[in-house]
Simulated assay, not measured.
Amino acid sequence: MVGNKRGKRLAKYEPSYVVFDLETTGINSNTDRIVEVAGIKVVGGKVEDTFSTLVNPERSIPKRATMVNGITDEMVAGAPKINHALDEFLSFSENHILVGHNIHTFDMKFIYNATEELYGGVIDNDYIDTLYLSRKVLPQLRHHKLVDLSAYFHISSEGAHRALNDCWMNQKCYEELGKLQSNITVEICPKCGGELMKRNGKFGEFFGCGNYPECRYTRNI
């Protein structure tokens, strides 16, 4: 599960997965810390288990972060530290595909940094970012935040910005996005499962994998 190679971002709906979410002390994955981890395990489209824990970041939580997620220093004072919390989450998620909203540029970076610091390697779970999926199947939406998706699908966003609540919202949104994706054509990379995207090169347009440079698959149009 932990090694030298990061997992790939997939572009297609998968019925078995762990949707997860983090709350943090800020937006910088190099300097900020995780304060909450949650996940929902789904097998064959059915929820099987949930996971949720606060995390003691061993530092004061900035007021601006508390204003977003409502998590205070007092709430995390007796919570497990990141090494214990991450051990439990990795045992929970195992080798499942991870699903989350905006995880490609946010949550996965926090997870990678934490696993590198604690274990000397990174998790190799493939993952699906519902932000990219939403942009693909719902191009008519002006904004693609999780609360925007929830509103579009008439899913309650009560309790947003707490990790487990966001997981429940996104799990429902992901299932709806999967239904919509089945009605459109998405070019899938046969090598890694990522999305093939049109690009311009020296000799004109071609399809290139969205996981470049990790995956260098190309195909002529």
Score class of each variant (00 low, 15 high):
residue 1 M to N: 10
residue 3 G to D: 08
residue 4 N to G: 11
residue 4 N to M: 10
residue 9 R to T: 09
residue 10 L to M: 14
residue 12 K to M: 12
residue 14 E to W: 10
residue 15 P to F: 07
residue 17 Y to F: 15
residue 19 V to G: 03
residue 19 V to N: 05
residue 25 T to E: 02
residue 28 N to V: 05
residue 28 N to G: 01
residue 30 N to C: 06
residue 30 N to V: 09
residue 32 D to N: 04
residue 33 R to V: 01
residue 43 V to N: 15
residue 45 G to M: 06
residue 48 E to M: 14
residue 53 T to A: 00
residue 53 T to R: 00
residue 53 T to N: 00
residue 55 V to A: 00
residue 56 N to W: 00
residue 60 S to Y: 09
residue 64 R to V: 11
residue 65 A to K: 04
residue 66 T to G: 15
residue 68 V to H: 11
residue 68 V to P: 03
residue 68 V to I: 13
residue 70 G to F: 01
residue 70 G to R: 02
residue 71 I to K: 03
residue 73 D to F: 03
residue 75 M to E: 05
residue 75 M to F: 00
residue 75 M to A: 09
residue 76 V to D: 00
residue 76 V to W: 00
residue 77 A to Q: 08
residue 78 G to M: 00
residue 78 G to R: 00
residue 79 A to M: 04
residue 80 P to I: 07
residue 85 A to G: 04
residue 87 D to V: 02
residue 88 E to M: 11
residue 94 E to T: 01
residue 94 E to K: 06
residue 98 L to A: 09
residue 100 G to T: 10
residue 101 H to I: 12
residue 102 N to L: 03
residue 107 D to M: 04
residue 112 Y to T: 06
residue 113 N to S: 14
residue 115 T to P: 00
residue 116 E to A: 13
residue 118 L to H: 08
residue 119 Y to W: 07
residue 119 Y to E: 01
residue 119 Y to Q: 04
residue 121 G to R: 11
residue 123 I to A: 03
residue 128 I to C: 02
residue 133 L to S: 10
residue 134 S to Q: 10
residue 135 R to W: 08
residue 139 P to Y: 08
residue 140 Q to V: 07
residue 146 L to R: 13
residue 147 V to T: 15
residue 150 S to F: 08
residue 150 S to L: 13
residue 156 S to K: 13
residue 157 S to M: 03
residue 162 R to H: 10
residue 167 C to N: 07
residue 168 W to V: 06
residue 173 C to R: 09
residue 174 Y to L: 02
residue 174 Y to T: 04
residue 178 G to P: 01
residue 181 Q to E: 11
residue 181 Q to F: 05
residue 185 T to H: 14
residue 185 T to E: 13
residue 191 K to R: 12
residue 199 R to T: 13
residue 201 G to R: 08
residue 202 K to Q: 15
residue 209 C to H: 06
residue 211 N to S: 06
residue 211 N to F: 04
residue 217 Y to W: 08
